[in-house]
């Protein structure tokens, strides 16, 4: 065992990179669920974003354009879900699951010509002298732009939900769509906007995988990250900063256990491997113990269809 071979600073930097895809997807899903819509298609939107972003980046040579393409791709796919659930009032759970299957198939089809291609490299943001700071330099100032964008989105979502009027309306729609409707708010429009935002964020998360973290296109490459994102939203009790905490915790334990294995720590590997999931489940259990749905802060209208006549 040689723990000295693990550099804690590099580890923290690595966990931020490992957590960013699920963070992006989870913060988007949080907004969707806050508006009262349960979209289980995160996995499908992520993988669609991954291939859209990859294809655009490869064709244009610009990773930045790739991320824009990923957001657009994810949003378009999510709007399919939006139209089905908001206008045609299909069941949200079933439609979300179908969206995942559809996204996986669609991405495999779109990605056929992109297997084995290398995407243009995404550079790290140049902070100049800040990057040379001891400790903080490695941890905070040597990442690619998307890490900072993901943090900015979390802060933005928090401020939007807490302080803005539009955020209040969105929360009202999620708590009681009938009351919001009676007040004259366009429930369906608000929800469609939230769904599109969630899709765009999931797309960005997927593109982060295919353009930066892996970086390549492989079919099915999200490998369940979308489901983790869904769990993290519940884990976070629908609070933006807790989404950040949950995503970094999950990503952190994942990276840590790989590093511990590489260093040959004498803990049985089985426990190390299951630790991210165990810890997530444990926190979920602790947080939900002896509390009702209201205390968990789930939006009251989550998963319910809305029709103006009802």
């Amino acid at each position: 065992m040689d723990l000295s071979s693990i550099n804690p600073l590099v580890l923290i930097a690595a966990l931020m990179v490992a957590s960013t895809p699920i963070l992006l997807a989870a913060i988007g899903e949080l907004v969707v669920e806050k508006s009262g819509v349960l979209n289980l298609g995160v996995e499908g939107m992520m993988i669609t974003g991954a291939i859209c972003g990859f294809a655009v980046a490869v064709e244009s040579g610009s990773p930045a354009l790739g991320f824009v393409g990923a957001a657009v791709g994810g949003a378009l796919l999510s709007l399919l879900f939006g139209v089905l659930t908001q206008y045609l009032l299909s069941n949200q759970v079933a439609t979300g699951l179908a969206l995942t299957l559809f996204g996986l198939g669609l991405s495999a089809l779109m990605g056929q010509d992109y297997v084995g291609i290398k995407p243009p490299a995404t550079g790290d943001v140049n902070f100049g002298p800040l990057a040379d700071l001891p400790v903080l330099g490695i941890v905070l100032f040597r990442h690619d732009l998307m890490v900072y964008v993901s943090l900015a989105i979390v802060a933005g979502v928090w401020a939007f939900l807490k302080y803005s009027r539009a955020g209040l309306i969105l929360r009202a729609v999620g708590e009681s769509h009938d009351a919001a409707h009676a007040l004259g708010y366009k429930v369906v429009h608000v929800r469609l906007a939230a769904i599109a935002f969630g899709g765009a964020c999931a797309g960005l998360g997927g593109a982060y995988l295919s353009l930066i973290r892996v970086p390549q296109w492989t079919e099915g490459m999200t490998a369940g990250a979308g489901w983790i994102a869904l769990a993290i939203v519940v884990f976070a009790s629908w609070k933006p900063w807790r989404v950040l905490l949950g995503a970094y915790l999950f990503g952190g334990v994942t990276v840590l256990q790989l590093n511990l294995q590489a260093a040959g720590v004498a803990i049985p590997v089985e426990y190390l491997s299951m630790s991210p999931y165990i810890i997530t489940i444990l926190v979920l259990v602790i947080m939900s113990s002896n509390r009702g749905r209201a205390a968990l802060a789930a939006p009251a209208a989550l998963g319910r269809s809305f029709h103006a006549s009802s």
Binding site: V10, T222, A225, Q261, A262
Partner: peptide, 22 residues
């Protein structure tokens, strides 16, 4: 490093990076 999966590109990449960093 045992990753307990046959196919998970992100995890495989993380494992490779952990090995290389060490």
């Amino acid at each position: 490093i045992w990753v307990y999966t046959w196919f998970d590109p992100a995890k495989e990449a993380d494992a490779a990076n952990a090995l290389i960093e060490q």
